[in-house]
Nucleic acid binder design. Structure first.
Lengths: 100, 100
DNA sequence: GTAATTTTGACAAATTCATTCAAAACAGAA
DNA sequence: TTCTGTTTTGAATGAATTTGTCAAAATTAC
């Protein structure tokens, strides 16, 4: 249940790479990557895709991690957080079945 | 499974009230309310609370409707939408248990 | 200690978002 | 059709949020 930040920090440290290296690959300032890893900034979709490629892990898994982080952030400090997530699931399922 | 917009439009039309009346209560331009009802704009939390009071319905129900709309919007056109919602649920549950 | 790396925060730029307003579109009644 | 009230649209503005840059401070490793 790691956040995106925790995940990529672990991967980076496993390979003993400095922020600089990964940041260069993503074409962003290392300060931003530092913040992303610690959850102070959100990555954008493009960056997530690049990160998956860089670390050679499944793109979809990282996207799920990233998206779910955003969702958690969105419902934070709402009492109805869980309920809202469940209803959102229903709505997505419903839309999917309808779109066919 | 109505969206917030559909819900409040129905309520307003049941009572045969013009946009003007409800908009005045919310202290916003009627153009905005029109857009909120048709899902072209997001309401903010405060407006949702006021709407619940105005129509005398449960605040939490309307908040769930509003929040879940935002979540659906956030994951729209992502293949991993459902998965992300499920993982987000797990994360929220986990955070809740930890925060005690 | 030095050197490399990471974190922080101030600032600027860019982008997104909300709001206002007036005109256009629409609906119903006469 | 015209009159009246309502709703929708879109352009323009302003506010707020996000995003990136940079350099200095803090931390870590040697």
């Amino acid at each position: 249940m790691d956040s995106l930040g925790e995940t990529i920090r672990k991967l980076r440290e496993e390979k003993e790479l400095p922020l600089r290296t990964v940041a260069a690959y993503l074409d962003i300032d290392q300060a931003i990557l530092s913040k992303i890893e610690r959850g102070q900034r959100n990555a954008n979709r493009e960056q997530v895709v690049k990160l998956a490629a860089f670390f050679k892990i499944k793109e979809n898994e990282l996207l799920v991690s990233w998206l779910s982080d955003k969702l958690v952030y969105e419902v934070a400090d709402e009492d109805v957080a869980l309920k809202a997530l469940q209803v959102a699931e229903e709505k997505v399922k419903y839309n999917k079945s309808k779109r066919k």
